[in-house]
Amino acid sequence: MPIIETRELRKVFRSVKRTPGAVGAIKTLFSRETVERVAVEGVTMSLDAGELVGYIGPNGAGKSTTIKMLTGILVPTSGEIRVAGLVPHLDRKKNARNIGVVFGQRSQLYWDLPLVESFELLRAIYAVPRDRFKANMAEFTQLLEMGDFLNTPVRQLSLGQRMRGDFAAAMLHDPRIVYLDEPTIGLDVLAKEAIREFVARVNAERGTTFILTTHDLADVERLCKRIVLIDEGRVIYDGGVEGIKEQYGTHRTLVVSLAGDPGTVAVADAELESREGNVVRLRFDRKAISADQLIRRVTEHYAVNDVSIEEPELESIIRRIYVEGYTDPLVAAP
């Protein structure tokens, strides 16, 4: 049975129409004219317990709005929604006990107080039994390497330390579902890796369900088997990470290191992507030409030291989908 289910979830924001300028400001005061903005246009999805799903899309696609509806702090305009058996906005406080939330851009920790005091407060809020709290604290302190700064006021922590604190804070009450909203934004490589490691581990060991919203697709590649891609409020892809690469990553890049300088480089069926000194990058469609054929064509005309093939990264695939739209009618949502 799925732990999160939404059907035709829709959210329309209404606001009073504003006219610019001083006269406009007065007009706005008396005007009852409203403008509508559709943030989410019929999102249907279903997540099983223990899944770790990447929920991605460009800015303004409706990701945050969906997450807000799942946490119960936003009422849907229409559609159905169930999280662990509850309708979040009707049972907000009960739902709150089942979920944990991490926002990369804002913290739920007490700014002026030592980190550990925020944890104690959360223990009281969620009424976490003392032994459970102790066990979680011990485990998280070790996994997130928080031992050195538990007693430091949060305002003195580095961003990486603060985010570790926020992750621990979101999971102290053993939530069944955790929403991560851009959790690695602004972090250095080490902190990013520590956090990814932590998420992977909690997911594997505790079976916690995660929805990860991010613009860093390396997070998704590292953590998620499944992605839900949303654009203009609609789901445009829902499936495996490998699947989308298979479908959309039709282009590969052949990197050729030339032995000498042959002047201009041109090969049929391949597009010259870039050239730096002797290294030439050729982008090709694997449906038009196989890698093997292309390499032969290159070596026929040029003296070559080395060749390698680059697989497309998720990021470049997603970028293309944002720009061109998802077109495969077999997988695209209705």
Binding site: K68, G72, I73, K93, A96, I99, V101, R106, I125, Y126
Partner: peptide, 13 residues
């Protein structure tokens, strides 16, 4: 103003 009220509303309080 800062929007942190959202985090508070996500608590069972």
């Amino acid at each position: 103003r800062e929007g942190t009220i959202a985090t508070d509303l996500m608590k069972p309080i």
